Computed example of a mutant assay.
Amino acid sequence: MGEKVLMKGCEAIGEAAVKAGCKCFFGYPITPQTEVSAYLSKRMPKIGRVFLQAESEVAAINMVYGAAGTGIRTMTSSSSPGISLKAEGISYIAGAELPCVIINIVRGGPGLGGIQPAQSDYFQATKGGAHGDFSMPVYAPASIQEMVDVIQDAFDVADIYRTPVMVMGDGMLGQMMEPVEFKERPAKELPEKAWAANGLNGRKAHNVINSLYLKPEELEHHNEHLQAKYAEIKKNETRYELFNCEKDCDLIMVAYGTTSRICKNVIKLAEKEGIKLGLIRPITIWPFPVEAFDKTVDNTKYGYLSVEMSCGQMVEDVRLASDGRKPVAFYGRSGGMVPNPEEILVKVRAIVGGAK
């Protein structure tokens, strides 16, 4: 076992990216993720890597496009309004099939909103995030340790499938401090980047990095290729945790990120009242873990409760995954308000009919 160090979430993201082999970081400061940039501004130059604070979020994501086109590992980081500004570039990156990692430490919205934690970027992250028919894998870690671990996974998945990958945490995960361990992991066998626009392995042929297809037949073929790739990602990269869901649950909650940790405390409180609760925790919110509902649908008496720091965005995917087999309820707070276990338990009691 390695040594654990106490780190703030945003700084741990930066160190995890360094250890995952990120060679270039392009970003622009915005609360509550500015510490990612601040940490890497000192760390990257010391080890001969590139840190560049761009003049805007639009510039930053286009720099990512250029660096990723050479085949090197590259990352950007932002928070909700900044991700919106990067949206066009993210679509271009997906269309050109370039691997990169995008960090979103979510704050309350819409608009400038506030700087408190939220999960209100769920639709943006999981329903494409920009124009066109594309998807990208999105990890939603629940602790700083898991956030550190999935950074390595994100870079690997990006390289394997030639896709942008998002790691999405709320502002609480970005700003809180927890002990973390940077684990040594065996290197994955990754495909050769024969597509890259550089002189790797003495290649003399020119590669063109592009997402423009003026002939509709060619663009349709490209979209079909992308959809086949996304089907493979769904098959191979979906991740989730089942907690206390084995059998005879009164209700199964569905929550990700910080909210899932709160829900685990709700389970303890409910147990004292004779109410048995389970938890489905999506670790990837795209692909969404439909399989978890197939495994648990017969184990819950009153169905599912989607608990979110939003106005009910994930509840749509919970309903789709449940597919009418069990009722789906929703409890959420928004605008940077964080639900507490007691108020969630009030909602649980209303669904299951009070203490047992």
Rank of each mutant, 00 (worst) to 15 (best):
L6Y: 11
G9S: 07
E11D: 12
A12Q: 08
E15M: 10
K19V: 02
K19I: 07
G21K: 05
G21P: 14
P32G: 05
T34L: 06
E35K: 10
V36R: 00
M44K: 05
M44V: 05
I47D: 08
Q53L: 10
A54C: 14
A54H: 03
E55W: 03
E57W: 00
E57P: 04
A60L: 02
A67M: 15
G69Q: 07
R73T: 07
R73Y: 03
T74I: 07
S80Q: 11
A87F: 05
G89Q: 09
Y92G: 02
I93T: 04
A96P: 06
L98N: 01
P99M: 02
P99T: 05
C100W: 01
I102H: 02
I103F: 15
N104D: 15
R107S: 12
G109H: 04
P110A: 08
G111R: 01
G111H: 02
G113C: 07
P117K: 00
S120Q: 11
F123I: 05
Q124K: 02
K127W: 02
F134G: 03
S135L: 01
M136W: 03
S143L: 08
S143N: 10
Q145H: 05
E146W: 12
D149N: 15
Q152R: 15
A154I: 04
F155S: 12
A158M: 09
R162T: 14
R162E: 15
T163P: 11
V167L: 12
F182I: 13
K183D: 12
R185W: 01
P191V: 10
W195F: 09
A197P: 00
L200Q: 06
V208A: 03
V208S: 04
L212E: 11
P216D: 06
H222R: 14
H225M: 10
Y230T: 02
A231Y: 00
E232P: 00
N236I: 01
T238G: 01
F243H: 14
N244S: 13
E246Y: 12
I252C: 10
Y256F: 15
Y256M: 13
R261Q: 15
I262Y: 04
I262A: 01
C263L: 04
I267C: 00
A270L: 09
E271H: 11
E271T: 06
K272W: 00
E273S: 08
L279F: 07
I285C: 12
P287I: 03
V290N: 12
E291K: 15
D294C: 01
K295R: 14
K301W: 01
G303L: 08
L305F: 10
V307C: 08
S310V: 06
S310Q: 07
Q313D: 09
K326H: 06
A329D: 14
V338L: 08
V338Q: 04
P339Q: 03
P339V: 08
N340P: 00
P341W: 01
P341I: 00
E343K: 06
V346S: 11
V346K: 14
K347W: 00
R349W: 14
V352S: 05
V352K: 05
G353S: 10
K356D: 11
